[in-house]
Design a protein around this nucleic acid. Structure first.
Lengths: 230, 230
DNA sequence: CCAAAAGTGTTACCGTTACACCCATGC
DNA sequence: GCATGGGTGTAACGGTAACACTTTTGG
């Protein structure tokens, strides 16, 4: 058995593609870029780049995201590696996908203007190049799975949010409707949130109380590995 | 924004490492190889190889597995990609891990003799080279997660098996004890198995009926995406 | 005063869990 | 005849799901 029979010629180009999710107007959004170079110039694509010698995959994904959004400390998760022989017609490329959750409000709007990037409703996502549509599907599945077990959804919301926003976010991600009272009861049972004295007045006359994550409790619960099944 | 600024020098070596699970003696097992070359000669390692130009990752994993076990049609799932800068001290290598479920009974014993490979109790797994211990942990987590939602565990068993074997396999994977009656009731509610007229006489005097998967129902249920929460 | 969203508890139902005894047979 | 594992059903419990009315206030 020979395991170390590798050839330098078998080295490949490694790309990182990011499925960037956002949430506003009660919809799950995805950030896409219009390619300004061949092949597939003018078509929509995930935001991506190539792995560099001096970084690992997580660092590459972070760099690519920071470059396009100006944000640091973005929540990210590796999803899958894609390697079909002709997925990139230009050159053999393996791509590792990451999904990212970003708070659209924090996201620097200037960069949106400087770059040919745009938020799309996930439900209204255009045809993407290569196998990027598959990547989006797989990323969504993983997100749905993750959020059903860990309360990572906060990453999509501003620091303070209403219970209704939180619920709508879950509904958008899971593509389902949830009962208002059951949702609140369930979420309160997790004991993760602090009620603030502030109200959001933008969506009703009465106003809705804003909540925020109790970071101490949040960290503790995550470490304990509690179940957050919604 | 420049997305296509890749350099040929950033190409990397891509490895595939397989976490091969088996099940016998009521224990979850893992197949490991003792390295017969430097670096880390003599240490235990996952079974792996390098991606070749003309194949994708799934094909590479299949090839590596077939080479060592002689088996085809092995159940496999990609787990994760590992890319820490110095994970392989010899040369920058990114590794994509796969877990595989194999029926140890079908697995050709000659290959075990020809090669420095050996089955270990997962609980008794030695220190492995590089980040292979992490790979095993991650693979086990994914397996536990998968088997809680899809009935893939059959892949570890011979074609015909007793309910007790099935239960012990779940117990081994999930590292928990299950109630005999509840397990059988639950599993029967999935309506996936056919009772045969044969009995396994090896573990009791009365003998235990052998069951087999009803392939038609199995395929249908998988497609429908039914829940198989144990 | 009315429209529109916020906020709040209780009950019925169903799935999960806990649990014990008889059966068949080889020795 | 007895020790060993095989096979079976029911009842209590707990979590999930269904459900409606009152409150607030800007216009």
């Amino acid at each position: 058995m020979v395991l170390n029979n590798y050839c330098k010629e078998d080295k490949v180009l490694l790309a990182v593609d990011c499925i960037i999710f956002g949430f506003y107007q009660e919809e799950l959004k995805i950030l896409l870029v219009q390619r300004d170079f061949e092949p597939a110039k003018g078509e929509w694509s995930l935001i991506g780049g190539f792995l560099k010698k001096e970084e690992d995959l997580d660092a590459a994904a972070t760099r690519i995201l920071n470059h396009l959004t100006g944000l640091n400390n973005i929540y990210m998760d590796q999803v899958h590696s894609y390697s079909k022989l002709n997925r990139d017609p230009e050159e053999r490329t393996i791509s590792v996908s990451y999904f990212a959750l970003i708070d659209v409000a924090h996201h620097c709007k200037d960069l949106l203007k400087q770059n040919p990037i745009k938020w799309f409703d996930l439900k209204d996502c255009p045809e993407l190049i290569f196998d990027h549509n598959d990547m989006v599907k797989d990323a969504l599945k993983l997100l749905q799975n993750k959020i059903s077990n860990k309360p990572i959804g906060f990453e999509l919301l501003p620091e303070k949010f209403t219970m209704r926003q939180l619920q709508k976010m879950y509904e958008a991600i899971l593509d389902t409707e949830l009962d208002k009272r059951n949702f609140i009861n369930k979420f309160n049972s997790f004991d993760l949130l602090k009620k603030t004295n502030e109200k959001d007045m933008s969506s009703s006359k009465k106003g809705a109380f804003l909540f925020e994550v109790d970071e101490d409790k949040y960290q503790k619960k995550i470490e304990e590995g509690c179940s957050f099944k919604i």
